[in-house]
Design a protein around this nucleic acid. Structure first.
Length: 429
RNA sequence: GGAGAGGUGGGUGAGUGGCUGAAACCAACGGUUUGCUAAACCGUCAUAGUGGGACAACUGCUAUCGAGGGUUCGAAUCCCUCCCUCUCCGCCA
């Protein structure tokens, strides 16, 4: 949610920002309704004041044994007016809130203006000195992850579909072990080397949480919902982890703080059928280790760079080639002010796959979720924190890259050194 | 699923219709005292909206005692609905 005062003061900037982001939002309507709201407040507060004053007087008169009936009669009318004005105010504020909730975050100045993926800017790329598998010298054609998965008996898409439908992958044998190893490895690196505190969140959350991080109201059709309990399956651990501190004021020393946590992620991917649906590329359930930061506003962009570096470290340790791209305004998500995507190279697909998205939301989520902190000791006035998060990383896409990069000409897969303590085996064959 | 209990400020916890935005205590913060620490004492100690003011200091008003509605001149206090938490029993991983 944007700051209403900021909209009042710089309406043109907001209009342009919304346009750059290719979102919709009627700034003038917001300003109109805000003006109306303040009118009502001015009037009704005045009336409440008289009511309070006169009520006190009535109390005093009664105590003194005087007759207060005329004053009481007078106040009946006032009370009725207050009631109807309060009702109108509530309606107006609800409208305003809905409008504000539907306005996107505005991109940071450092974000290139652009329309789509084509306008994203590659910031850097990284290629390991040596590959884990052996593929460059061989004449054997590279296999893709589906073929590898089938041949090695580690991914069973058909039976996954039998259980739940397409897009619900089933890992078997060494595949299941490898998946678990990846998760544990990533959490350990972030916890032990990057200073993140580990959390294990619930996988379903209530609507307030979904509003807090910005999934609601816009992404309703993309989420799985348990209608009987009015709970949603989380599309990312960002939701529960960021919402841990919803409606709280953090102490000075609690900011910045870093959290990492694993969760399964559930996405309906409505409307994307037919696109990249084969194998692991787009699934309804996947595993992800998420990084979340609560940062001070003045250095949240430094925190974003560090966050990206923390994710890169994982890929480097796994010897997986990747590139970092800065998303343009049009490709940046609704809630984010600035986003870097990390894309891993999948040689079997001959494609870059988005495996991580790292964003600074500034105070957009914090304002929605009402997460504040005292910037300068226990007496200082609360301010909204800046929230950041990034996938560190999503295992589905990572698994594709890993299998395809670490395959041998014989069709086996070499497990990267750093994962071997977690898997207990060095080769999948 | 059955039966109960309860939701008040950072915490504990008073408060059953009007000088209660809310006692008291603890924590925290500032200070006095002190060789240092401790103790003691004094003081400060919510958030938001809206207006004045230089979008300062400061200040007026309004709101907030789980949420919403009702009764009343007036509600933390009475009534209704909902939400949440806890305890016991049953069932179950």
């Amino acid at each position: 949610m944007l700051d209403l005062k900021r909209i009042r003061e710089f309406p043109d900037d907001i209009r342009r920002g919304i346009q750059d982001k290719h979102e919709r939002g009627d700034v003038d309507a917001v300003l109109d309704i805000d003006r109306r709201r303040r009118e009502i407040i001015a009037g009704v507060d005045q009336l409440k004041n008289t009511r309070n004053v006169v009520s006190q007087e009535i109390a005093r008169m009664k105590k003194a044994g005087e007759d207060a009936s005329s004053r009481i009669e007078e106040m009946k009318g006032v009370s009725d007016t207050i009631k109807s004005m309060d009702e109108e105010l509530r309606t107006v504020e609800e409208q305003l809130r809905e409008m504000l909730l539907s306005l996107p975050n505005i991109s940071h100045d450092s974000v290139p203006v652009g329309e789509s993926d084509a306008d994203n800017v590659e910031v850097r790329s990284w290629i390991p000195e040596h590959t884990v598998g052996i593929n460059e010298e061989s004449d054997e054609p590279l296999r893709d992850h589906i073929e590898l998965g089938k041949k090695l008996g580690i991914l069973d898409f058909d039976r996954g579909a039998k259980l739940s439908g397409s897009g619900f992958p089933l890992y078997t044998g060494a595949g299941a072990t490898l998946e678990r190893a990846l998760i544990n490895f990533m959490i350990d690196v972030h916890r032990n080397e990057h200073g993140y505190r580990e959390v294990f969140p619930p996988f379903v959350v209530n609507t307030a949480s979904m509003y807090g991080t910005g999934q609601l109201p816009k992404m309703t059709e993309d989420m799985y919902r348990c209608a009987d309990d009015d709970l949603y399956l989380i599309p990312t651990a960002e939701v529960p982890i960021t919402n841990m501190y919803r409606d709280e004021i953090l102490d000075t020393e609690q900011v910045p703080s870093y959290f990492c946590g694993y969760s399964a992620c559930f996405r309906r991917e409505a409307g994307s059928y037919g696109k990249q649906t084969k194998g692991f590329l787009r699934v309804h359930q996947f595993n992800k280790v998420e990084l979340v930061k609560f940062a001070r506003p003045e250095n949240s962009y430094d925190e974003l760079e560090k966050l990206v570096a923390d994710v890169e470290k994982i890929l480097q340790l796994l010897h997986i080639p990747y590139r970092v791209r800065l998303l343009c305004t049009g490709d940046t998500s609704f809630s984010s002010a600035k986003t870097y995507d990390l894309e891993v190279w999948a040689p079997g697909e001959e494609a870059w796959l988005e495996a991580s998205s790292c964003s600074n939301f500034e105070d957009f989520q914090a304002r929605r979720a009402n997460i504040r902190f005292r910037p300068d000791g226990p007496k200082s006035k609360p301010e909204f924190v800046h929230t950041l998060n990034g996938s560190g990383l999503a295992t589905s896409r990572l698994m594709v890259a890993l299998l395809e990069n670490c395959q041998t000409p014989e069709g086996t897969v070499v497990v990267p050194k750093v994962l071997q303590p977690y898997t207990g085996f060095a080769v999948i064959d």
